[in-house]
Design a protein around this nucleic acid. Structure first.
Lengths: 248, 248
DNA sequence: AAGTGGTCTAGACCACTAA
DNA sequence: TAGTGGTCTAGACCACTTC
């Protein structure tokens, strides 16, 4: 048996107390000073215990204000970790976007709703096909709308091997802090079916991604349509602190 | 201007040194003692700096062994954080699985390949439909294969409001450490189309999830087929350390 | 056995928050 | 202005790795 560390013991006690309702969500935990006194521990040890509670997402702390209980149970955390935006757009590393058309568009009512902006707002619109080398059929039809604030990338994307998001991240000092992604199945028809050389009504994966900056504004919106048999969206999610991540 | 903290300054210096190649990936960083001496800092401050490098994924440390450089650049981390397995199976909280059939099956060649096991291995197979209250059509046809080691859940799942993964997590002391998920578009036909009351060839989202234990064995495999217009798979990914997570 | 990082103490000063 | 958490020092002992 390994020796239980004091900070780990204190953390366990506090987690137990929070779970039992002694410290309800929204209430404050005792101050560091008070915990030092109660459990006869140094401040260092108390802080180490509280750091564990923070890591578990059970409390939040603010200088001058105290330690607040924010969750009753330290839920096991499952994490999909991505090292770059390219990992979200999984294929970006191997697949190349061949641009078919670039234009400045003004948002009509329908587009404005999709992009979360006012009608009339101007966007850089890019339309193209994504392909991987050695495969004759494209893996997706893609439409990308870039916030006109970042229209400076226009000259950089033709024949760029990088994803547009990566170009923007580089040129504008990493503005993207969040990505929202919606995946649905659709039946493809009309012009897009023709472009992808699909029979009308063929099943496809539709992926809409919204890249947000810190203000919550959309930096990029991309819409990809992947024919059913040409694309699989795969992801691995591992439990926080598990060593499984490397092996899966 | 806020005062830069010493540990943050040291962390920046070390990140810079690693990026410049002074400490190549695979090499060791100077010891805590050495860094204390070089920069005239207390060990506490040096350790705070090194903790930052760990959080950034640039170094890893081992007691008795030292601090190893594991990455040249602190890549921006994007994280999809999930508080429970239920968040992976997004609908599990609102949707209920109505079990149509439960049986013990022996894996034939095709099933064995999908499950990553030997042919002949026995699994608990559950077939059902997922529905949400107040909606007449089911949102998915679902097949679930449970490793026979966990067959004890069989009696617990009929009419259970909990997801099967949650039941196993509870009964068997949280064996699941990783989940692999594959999303594709398919055209539905045959028996499944009938069951979902879909026209043959209708587009649908197919989601295959494999829940693994620490040994890498599959605990549960689930296959869900969601008719196109009844289901959207949505996820939010935020940059590590961003405050955006709460607002999106 | 020597050296590493992990834990822990007892102090100190400071920045921030709330009364 | 009192009290909170954040940073920092100078020590100490211990568990672990490497030789």
């Amino acid at each position: 048996m390994s020796v239980p560390h004091r900070y780990a013991q204190l953390a366990d006690i506090l987690i137990e107390d929070i779970g039992s309702g002694r410290y309800p969500v929204g209430d404050r935990l005792p101050t560091e000073h008070e915990l030092c006194r109660q459990y006869e521990l140094s401040r260092y040890t108390v802080r180490a215990a509280l750091r564990r509670l923070i890591d578990l997402g059970v409390v939040s702390r603010r200088q001058g204000s105290g330690t607040r209980v924010v969750a009753r149970y330290p839920v096991p955390r499952y994490v999909l970790s991505l090292s770059s935006l390219d990992d979200i757009v999984q294929h970006a590393r191997e697949a190349r976007l061949s641009v078919r058309k670039t234009s400045i568009v003004s948002a009509d009512a329908k587009l404005a709703r999709r992009l979360g902006c006012k009608t009339g707002k101007r966007w850089l619109r890019i339309e193209g096909l994504r392909s991987v080398e050695g495969q004759s059929e494209p893996i997706s039809y893609t439409e990308i709308f870039v916030n006109s604030r970042y229209r400076g990338v226009r000259g950089l994307i033709d024949n760029a091997s990088q994803a547009i998001s990566a170009v923007i991240q580089e040129k504008y000092d990493e503005p993207i802090v969040a990505v929202n992604q919606e995946i649905t199945a659709i039946a493809v028809s009309g012009r897009i079916a023709e472009t992808l050389r699909l029979a009308p009504g063929a099943p496809a994966l539709s992926i809409v991604r919204r890249y947000h900056d810190e203000a919550g504004e959309i930096v990029i919106l991309s819409l990809s349509i992947h024919p059913a048999d040409r694309f699989v969206y795969a992801m691995n999610i591992t439990k926080q602190g598990s060593s499984f991540a490397a092996t899966i």
